[in-house]
Nucleic acid binder design. Structure first.
Lengths: 343, 343
DNA sequence: TTGGCTTCCGTAAACGTTTACGATAGTAGT
DNA sequence: ACTACTATCGTAAACGTTTACGGAAGCCAA
């Protein structure tokens, strides 16, 4: 005898009563409920996930889908850890558990998602590493699985999303650099077809145009969003016959490799070239300090969770219907790396 | 009508036959099996997780428990992602899925684990962030839940584990530094009671004693295992009245903050002080390059997975009974940061 | 023809919950 | 005393699988 039956026998009541007591149903005597709750605590009873899920069609689990393997996200581990922390503060209020669904780099994310969904693993999903063309959106919408994406896509299906405000970062970076007299500004983008690359580069192009400046497509550097990628970008910049006087980095980790690559050639960020990048725990300790744009990742996680729950009938009442699609602002963090001006 | 019933109706056979066909049971006609397999593929049928788990008592899921919030692990960005990648290559062979069970920093890991286990979430577990005194081990052993830990503890219960070879790193580092004439060697350790701190410092003490050198307990610096922690260590080192001539860093990320802290005071690693640390994607791009110890994390993940499976009856036959407790070797990576000698 | 094998497949129970429904007892109103 | 209602609880069905069991059909030997 296991689970709820054990508890019921122990209390000399029926399993139905135990279940009702634990789930806060109205038709159970206050005294009985108290006894059940105490006994459950004492015996360390927790409802079996599978039984409950099978009956209710809900698991109490929200999945955060992400891809493993090292360099694909361009964020550090701490990026997601901070986001998770925010998400969990919200989920805790509803006894929801957050698990990370780890899609192997060997497997197609779409296939993986299908498997997870068919298995009935989670009640809702948070998608990350969204691609410019992403079939997962369509699939989930068709099945009416609640989800939110961290990142936009061309193939959005009206689901809620939150994306980093790369447009704002691009605009502010270009404006700032142009004001300092820069005319040849390099920009980076991921090597693959993640959406942010397009968004970012497009806005840089537009911002330059607004200043009456041409955009040199040769100054767009693709790279892995890693330290090694940053190093390669430095080499590429140094190899330009007409070297750019400034560079804007779209990923977090590439600044480290870029610094090294530049310094090996005696080119010092902030003195010989202006650099603007993304804030991260280590960016604070680069020397010279990186002028960057930072994110409040914990709040981002909170917002992600709240927006998702607002779209789920079971939880919607707790959350006012706010904007379900929003750009997450980045804060400017002054530093020394963009001190060089080209006037 | 859903799931297996739908498939059965579509094929005009019973659900029993469908199930047997899909699960490779012997007593099903070859032709029938083929039809079932094809139809399942066509309709995208995947067995419902909850139903199967309820019946079989197994979920086909292995959980990797880790703690969220940012700075607690002390690993760099891609540490876990690389380990996951290795684990998954093994799990894929058995159609096992790896999910990360995210314990919020707000919740006690022991309570979290109890909840997860009672829910019947996973067939096996991988534990990380093990503490010197860790009640999770005892709990899992008592319930006979298969698990392996990434990291040792004083409260081990005979479970398999893999731990990083901090002893080897401590020994090699001290030997190397002493050979270069260093007598006052600082070592770092995490601020909390994670086991590695004790292991590491103890071995450093022992190694120094073997060289006939005293160990100055004032040269043990506790810090958060983060960049910021490294910065604080630099400040503390600089504040010593009799400054150490070398420092050994036990965590991955602190080198970055340490470099910055030292350089702000005009103290250059490799020229004015010897530094040995842990390898990480960004350590490669520090300047001067960090002399360090590196890990093959993907292989570590593979070994973790194989050792766990070897301890699970269902999968044990595929894996020879290797050593179930082992120190994972670290490879020495020469660099410039320990060039300074104190002879 | 009978009996015994083998091969294949359908039936139904079981896993641990939740919940619709009905049963009981008590209470109050007439 | 009878009805009507409420409060509380037990019973059993249902969720989607897997699997033990038994049955039907075919085949072969006696």
């Amino acid at each position: 005898m296991k689970g709820i039956h054990l508890l019921a026998k122990h209390l000399n009541v029926s399993i139905g009563t135990v279940s009702r007591a634990l789930n806060g149903k109205p038709d159970v005597n206050a005294e009985t409920r108290k006894r059940v709750l105490e006994a459950a605590e004492e015996l360390g009873y927790v409802p079996n996930q599978s039984g409950r899920a099978l009956r209710k069609g809900a698991t109490g689990v929200i999945g955060f889908m992400m891809q493993t393997g090292s360099e694909i996200t361009g964020h550090g581990d701490t990026f997601f850890m901070s986001v998770f922390d925010g998400v969990q503060t919200v989920f805790a209020r509803h006894k929801l558990d957050l698990v990370a669904l780890l899609c192997s780099s060997q497997e197609d994310p779409y296939d993986y998602l299908r498997r997870i969904v068919a298995r009935g693993f989670a009640d809702g999903l948070i998608l990350s590493s969204t691609r410019r063309i992403d079939h997962r959106f369509d699939f989930l919408a068709k099945r009416k699985i609640p989800f939110i994406s961290l990142g936009r896509s061309l193939t959005d299906v009206g689901q809620p999303w939150i994306d980093l405000d790369f447009e704002g970062m691009a605009q502010a970076s270009i404006d700032r650099l142009v004001a300092k007299g820069h005319r040849r500004i390099a920009v980076t983008r991921p090597h693959d077809d993640t959406n942010l690359g397009y968004v970012f580069v497009d806005r840089c192009r537009e911002a330059l145009a607004n200043h009456g400046l041409a955009f040199d497509e040769d100054l767009v550097f693709r790279s892995m969003p890693s330290e090694a990628g940053g190093y390669q970008i430095a080499r590429a910049i140094l190899a330009c016959e007409e070297r750019p006087t400034a560079v804007v980095l779209v990923n977090e980790t590439i600044a480290i490799g870029l610094y090294r690559g530049l310094e090996e050639a005696g080119v010092k960020p902030g003195r010989d070239i202006a650099v603007i990048g993304r804030h991260s725990p280590h960016a604070r300790f680069l020397s010279p300090s990186l002028t960057s744009f930072s994110l409040n990742l914990r709040d981002l996680g909170i917002s992600l969770a709240e927006t998702l729950l607002a779209s789920m009938p079971l939880y919607a009442e707790s959350y006012p219907q706010g904007p379900s699609r929003r750009l997450w602002p980045m804060d400017f963090v002054p530093g020394e790396s963009d001190a060089f001006s080209s006037k």
